[in-house]
Computed example of a mutant assay.
Amino acid sequence: MTPFAGICCVLFDLDGTLIDSAPDLAGAANAMREARGLAALPLDWYRSHSGSGARGMLRVAFDTEPGDAVFEALKQEFFDAYQSRLTLNTRAFDGVDRLISALSGAGLPWGVVTNKGQRFTVPLLQAMPLFQSAATVISGDTTPHAKPHPAPLLEAARQVGLSPQSCLYVGDDLRDIQAGRAAGMRTVAALYGYLGPSADVGTWGADQTISAPEELLKSLELP
């Protein structure tokens, strides 16, 4: 029997799970560096920090953290720079198209639960036809709390009209697995995303790990 028997809906994190947005996130940070006469940094320096959004990009680009005097101003500048290039180089990970097609073909609703703000999530997904079949899209500011709080996942389950226990959540960050477990959902850790070298996925408590998007189809017993 599949470990995910009884699953009626699959929910996904966005960055690092469905899409590779690292090139555009890094591009926004590098545009800020170049505006200050600084050299652009290699994409590889940014990639493992991409799941942390502005916080991760600014840490790499300017060695600054939340709480620093300059951080808030830099964060707003980064948001503007990123919004101007949301989909220049952002692509779905290989295999995501087949995964979404298989879920839709099986009549299994799916959705997105991300900490990315709505100002970015909505136009980004609208620009990518692959994701138009999403049954629900929950952004980082849809509910009063962001992941690892379970509220966004519980709202997604409410919107699709299913119990959290019948939903599966897939993500590439510890916060994703924490949120999914707190919501009472079964969880899958995506190893192909933005995991840094220090990530100890074995301690996260996910029900399963996958090394490619299409591996999820086997667990759900979908062709």
Rank of each mutant, 00 (worst) to 15 (best):
P3S: 11
A5T: 14
A5V: 07
G16Q: 05
S21A: 15
A22S: 15
G27K: 06
A31G: 13
E34N: 11
L38T: 03
L43V: 10
D44Y: 07
S50W: 01
S50D: 04
G51M: 00
A54T: 01
G56V: 04
G56E: 07
D63V: 05
D63P: 00
A73D: 12
Q76M: 10
F79M: 13
S84F: 04
L86D: 08
T87C: 15
N89Y: 05
T90W: 05
F93S: 00
V96Y: 05
L99W: 11
S101M: 09
A102H: 09
A106L: 11
K116L: 11
T121E: 01
V122L: 08
L124H: 02
A127N: 04
A134E: 03
A135W: 05
I138E: 04
H145E: 07
H149I: 05
A151G: 06
A157F: 10
R158I: 06
V160R: 04
S163F: 11
S163A: 15
P164A: 14
L168V: 08
D173H: 07
D173P: 01
L174E: 11
T187M: 03
T187S: 08
L191M: 12
Y192S: 01
G193E: 04
Y194A: 11
A199P: 03
D200G: 01
D200K: 01
D200N: 08
W204R: 04
A212N: 03
P213F: 04
L216P: 07
L217K: 07
L220R: 09
L222K: 04
